[in-house]
Design a binder for these strands. Structure first.
Length: 419
RNA sequence: GGGAGAAUGUCCCGAGCGGCAAAGGGGGCGGACUGUAAAUCCGCUGGCUAAGCCUUCGUAGGUUCGAGUCCUACUUCUCCCA
């Protein structure tokens, strides 16, 4: 892959920035991309009300595709989610109701318009839902038209099924069918929209290639596959997980400030890779930032955080998050833009215990945890460590704006504000 | 259909002669060191109105002063035979 010299901007960019893990026919795809002839899709399951950063790479691939003169399609798995993809999963996922799937779909769709332009022009992106053609399918017809092209022997040999079988874990028939549906999606998109490339995470390789195969058997034009690596951090953790859960792309599930913080806390060894994958910064700038050593690399992390946040949440939100962080961490100020929780003045006057104050602020999950954190020196009120679990909050702890700063550890701060 | 085994702390894996809030590990959180990094070291990791009280070992009963541990039934999963 490294010795391939792409002629198209699309592949040149993707390869240079580290998006490419595996591809079915690089030369053929390159030729197509060089003349702006690629129509590529990525499918997204509707299993949660928002995508998280695990899906961000593939969205970036769609964005680059458009920026290099080709047409992206974002496919919502409104149909396939009713079945459940077994790829890379140990256990059967619970089957979601159709209402949940629809609600999730509505949440997921929102992110895309930040990164991709939708419309009716040749290069404008399309958003489609595979429920459109999967839901009305007739079982017998589907078996005759599509099912006959699949070999169970071959399907059993593919990783998604093989792993389950080897580990003697349940693989239900409904999941086993997922591959057929995803393959059929590819064919359907080829027929409807001239789609000729499917991209996705490396765990999707089997499903994608089997779609190419189905396309050939069902007489579509030549189809291509391109996968990106599944991301882990330099220290091996899966990306997108934090203490409080996934790193969501939607604002209502994770504030811009917290999203910015996620990127700010990137490990040194990941900075260069993430700048390439999760920003549109030109390579020259990335090379310069990546060369920063020691404490200076923090500058690069701030750029990464702001750029990555701007992509998904908008430039203004990203700048605001950066500013909040700068005040809180570098100037030691109590920035009024920190996450804020309101509290009734009467509650404070009645004598509010610190334990419960931290609980209200959402910094601890219970007073038990608050007690433990006090023992470990992890709780601070207005930057002063708390030592007495029986202490209470009083009016004098609040500043002139009627706010106290409660902190858990060095990074998590919440303002309690009187109302 | 017959036989054998398993289910443990609401993140996961996993020990547990009738005295158990229950070993150990991973993960996570906090502290120290740093640079809001990694690595390393230390502490914590059921809930609460907290020297006490309450609720936990698949479900429901039973034996016992006392049950995660013994008995019975049920549920689910795995394996072997058919």
């Amino acid at each position: 892959m490294t010795d391939f010299q792409p002629k198209s901007d699309f592949l040149a960019t993707l390869i240079e920035r580290g998006y490419v893990h595996q591809a079915s026919d690089l030369a053929g795809l390159d030729a197509l991309a060089a003349k702006g002839g690629v129509v590529a899709y990525v499918g997204y399951d509707c299993t949660a009300p928002s995508l998280h950063i695990g899906s961000l790479i593939s969205i970036m691939m769609l964005a680059w595709l458009q920026r290099t003169g080709n047409k992206p399609i974002a496919l919502m798995g409104g149909g396939t989610t009713r079945v459940g993809d077994p790829s890379g999963k140990d256990e059967t996922r619970r089957i979601l109701s159709i209402e949940d799937i629809e609600a999730n779909k509505n949440g997921i769709q929102r992110v895309f318009s930040n990164l991709i332009n939708f419309g009716n022009g040749t290069i404008d992106a399309r958003m489609v839902d595979n429920a459109e053609w999967l839901a009305p399918l007739n079982y017998i017809e589907f078996l005759r038209d599509v099912g006959k092209h699949f070999s169970v022997n071959r399907m059993l040999a593919m990783d998604s099924a093989k792993l389950r079988l080897e580990r003697e874990q349940e693989l239900s028939f409904i999941e086993f069918n997922y591959m057929l549906l995803q393959s059929y999606d590819f064919v359907e998109l080829a027929r409807r929209y001239g789609c000729n490339l499917q991209m996705g995470g490396s765990d999707q390789w089997g499903n994608i290639v089997s779609g190419i195969d189905l396309g050939r058997r069902m007489g579509t034009h030549q189809l291509y596959a391109l996968t990106c690596p599944l991301l882990t951090t330099a220290s091996g953790a899966k990306m997108g997980k934090t203490a409080s859960g996934a790193v969501w792309l939607n604002e209502d599930l994770l504030s811009a400030y917290e999203y910015w913080q996620y990127w700010r806390n990137t490990e040194d060894a990941d900075v260069s890779r993430f700048l390439k994958l999760f920003t549109f910064l030109p390579m020259g700038e990335i090379v310069r930032l990546s060369a920063l050593g020691g404490a200076e690399i923090n500058e690069a992390k701030k750029v990464l955080a702001t750029e990555a946040t701007a992509l998904v949440r908008g430039r203004a939100a990203a700048e605001a998050a950066a500013d909040t962080a700068r005040r809180a961490f570098e100037l030691g100020e109590t920035a009024s833009s920190l996450p804020t929780v309101e509290i009734a003045a009467g509650e404070v006057d009645a004598g509010l215990g610190l334990l419960n104050a931290f609980l209200k602020a959402g910094l601890v999950s219970g007073t038990g945890e608050a007690r433990r954190q006090i023992e470990g020196g992890g709780l601070k009120v207005n930057d002063n460590a708390v030592s007495d679990p029986r202490a209470t909050l009083s009016r004098s702890d609040f500043n002139s704006d009627g706010a106290v700063k409660l902190s858990l550890g060095k990074k998590k701060h919440v303002l309690l504000k009187l109302v």
